[in-house]
């Protein structure tokens, strides 16, 4: 495992921890899109089907369990927890996330490396992860005041994606036969979605201002 991959996984892990910290300690999910969190839960549930069939490493299995557990518990918190659910802004979080799922299923059925259940599900999870952040970004546009933890959560997610691209470039040059168009293109699309957010995030950081996105 190279340094970019490890740093990518760690920023991904930190992003989840930041979100859980916000929800668990402050008992608030203000500014967090339930739609995006539900899509992530679906992404991990369809991607990590191999958890019981293919053993890669202890690290790999543990991380998979953490991402599965955390994504479902975040959804549970926002939907069911008696205090947290009150801070959920249902009126603002209106992105029709179900409409993202069907195109991803069709695309995964048409464009995949192997037409098997596990492979199609895995490909579906890649396509869905690429667009899963959209409801969150739309909600962010609508929320005038973005709190620090929410801003950091999205920054860490974007950093995780960027580091994965560096990891692929590194692996391409250091490993033989390392060509994965589906992973790379969907990963690149996903990272580009953060470009706008990054621009305003660094802008506010540079000027030491509170993060605000233009309406």
């Amino acid at each position: 495992m190279n340094i970019f991959r490890l740093a990518g996984d760690m920023t991904h892990l930190f992003s989840v921890l930041v979100l859980l910290l916000k929800i668990h300690t402050i008992k608030s999910c203000a500014g967090i899109s339930l739609k995006t969190q539900e899509l992530y839960a679906l992404v991990f549930a369809t991607r990590y089907l191999d958890i019981f069939t293919d053993y890669i490493s202890l690290y790999n299995t543990c991380m998979k369990l953490i991402f599965l557990g955390s994504s479902f518990s975040i959804v549970w918190y926002i939907r069911r927890h008696k205090i947290v659910r009150r801070s959920y802004d249902k009126e603002q979080d209106t992105f029709r996330h179900h409409f993202l799922i069907l195109p991803c299923i069709i695309l995964a059925l048409l464009i995949n490396e192997k037409f098997t259940v596990k492979e199609v599900m895995w490909t579906f999870s890649l396509y869905l992860e690429a667009v899963a952040i959209l409801p969150q970004l739309v909600l962010l546009q609508r929320t005038r005041n973005i709190d620090n933890l929410t801003g950091q959560y999205i920054f860490l997610l974007g950093a995780y994606r960027s580091l994965y691209i560096l990891n692929w470039i590194y692996r391409y040059f250091t490993e033989q036969h390392y060509v994965h168009w589906i992973t790379w293109i969907s990963g690149l699309v996903q990272t580009l979605l953060y470009a706008d957010f990054f621009y305003y995030y660094f802008h506010s950081w540079k000027n030491n201002e509170k993060l605000q996105l233009p309406a």
Partner: peptide, 10 residues
């Protein structure tokens, strides 16, 4: 043989 190396990523 097909390279399965992306499957080791998360």
């Amino acid at each position: 043989t097909k390279d399965e190396s992306t499957k080791d990523e998360l």
